[in-house]
Nucleic acid binder design. Structure first.
Lengths: 207, 207
DNA sequence: TTGCCTGCTGAACGTTCATTCAGTAACTTG
DNA sequence: CAAGTTACTGAATGAACGTTCAGCAGGCAA
């Protein structure tokens, strides 16, 4: 996604802003820093984006576009998700692994966006949830998931459990000693979580 | 927790700062705003707390103290959690409902703290995780939870699923149409989630 | 009373930031 | 080539902020 040199200055500014925003939050990043990171003058940043808010909006839109690309591969090709290999959790976490390089700032940016209280974050969550509803419906229809009496809650439950991995990635890596969103980490995570989803976690009368 | 008038100015400043920080984040709140909300001069805020960072630290410590109070009731009285009534999820969400008034800024503050990247947030998560490990161990020993091959991951899984409710409360309320951390909302949430944890969510060969 | 804290005020200081702007270089269009 | 548009710079502006500080009021000890 980052080609560095063959991008226009406008795109370079956007990508550097994305990285800095993801790392420290938009409020803590100055236009001067972004300009320095993109190797241009502060004036040029505002020339292209009008204001700092305009730049934030542009970055939000860019990330939303990346999300749409990812979700499109799911909705277009049902066979790709959840019925597949032995390690499949049917999770968005895996989707990210496939789409995004390990050092990408996008996951961290999504995390900030979701918890910022901005409209862009709300919009993202709504689309994500709609995607989750479609996916769970499909998996139920395919006989992979049990039907639930409250499909909206079930879709939300599965979705936010998945999302928690993204939101708490750093903390989990800290206490567990491995990054659950790395290729190796997700295997260890899934090795315990898939059985939990399959058999339940309570003892007692499981059906 | 808020008595408004019988508190010292120092405590009023702390509580107002807590509310404003929870709502908009510490960076977006100025000392002047806090002073105005507490009906004192900006100078007094710094007289009591030395610097803005000093005030942030004081608020962090205050919230950490509230967390410790809550977790102490769990560790001191094992019977209180998870083996009880028909609606028990064994969740921290319920604990909050019991301890904290519905309009308290504390949940929102905890959310910010956990995702701020500050040391106080990391420390909070570690203690929370330690608590989760103790609790799951106990529930396994009591025959309520299945034993897991990877207890650390299982404890983390249950914990972050619970935490997701706190972190994504507003978004969930938006898409579901009810607040999953309200008294009524948590019942509807649990009504679908408890069976999911009991029987699993996959069809196929549940044991 | 005198002296000395503590709580508290409000003006002032210096810094940092987003934004504006006049001007230069380069590319495009006629 | 001429003219206009776009890309870009760097200095200047003005606002907002955290912090400092001189000073006032009141309680308390000697």
């Amino acid at each position: 996604m980052f080609s560095e040199d063959d991008l226009t200055a406008r795109a370079v500014i956007r990508d550097r802003a994305l990285g800095l925003f993801a790392e420290r939050g938009p409020d803590a990043v100055t236009i001067r820093e972004i300009a320095a990171a993109a190797d241009v003058s502060p004036g040029l940043v505002l020339h292209h984006y009008g204001s700092k808010q305009g730049l934030r909006d542009a970055v939000d839109a860019h990330v939303a576009g990346l999300f749409d690309q990812m979700s499109a591969t799911v909705t277009d090709d049902p066979a790709q998700l959840g019925d597949g290999g032995p390690q499949t959790v049917g999770s968005f976490a895996e989707l990210m692994l496939a789409f995004i390089p390990a050092d990408s700032p996008v996951p961290a940016y999504l995390r900030r966006l979701l918890l910022s209280g901005e409209d862009a974050g709300r919009e993202l969550f709504r689309r994500w949830f709609a995607l989750s509803e479609v996916m769970t419906d499909r998996l139920v229809a395919a006989g992979i998931l049990r039907a639930s009496a409250d499909p909206a809650v079930r879709a939300a439950f599965l979705m936010v459990n998945d999302l928690a991995l993204l939101l708490l990635r750093d903390h989990l890596a800290d206490v567990l000693g491995f990054d659950p969103l790395s290729a190796r980490g997700i295997r260890r995570w899934a090795a315990d979580v898939v059985p939990a989803y399959a058999e339940g976690v309570f003892r007692g009368e499981a059906r």
